[in-house]
């Protein structure tokens, strides 16, 4: 995952302080609720200049850091972001 992404994610995870964010990190358990999901979505779209499709607005997309990153990379122009 892009370090820019984990940095962007951190402030939305109120129970994630001092924890390493990995693709398996459970976002809901770390404090991402539905209100913060919207703010996170806006932050992602601003940072990467992309728009996540309506079809991706599911619990599965926002389940883990890895699943969300996967949805982002699918929208990046030439998939510059490494998926790891």
């Amino acid at each position: 995952m892009d370090p820019r992404f984990t940095e962007l994610l951190a402030p939305f995870l109120k129970f994630g302080k001092d924890k390493q964010i990995t693709p398996e990190s459970n976002l809901r358990a770390l404090g991402l609720d539905s209100m913060r999901s919207i703010e996170l979505l806006f932050a992602i779209e601003d940072t990467y200049g992309i728009s996540l499709p309506d079809d991706e607005m599911t619990d599965a997309t926002f389940a883990t850091a890895g699943s969300l990153w996967h949805a982002i990379t699918a929208q990046l122009p030439d998939e510059t972001g490494a998926r790891t």
Binding site: F15, A29, G31
Partner: peptide
């Protein structure tokens, strides 16, 4: 809350 949970959301 789940046993050994790290947050109230588990």
């Amino acid at each position: 809350r789940s046993p050994d949970a790290e947050s109230p959301n588990e």
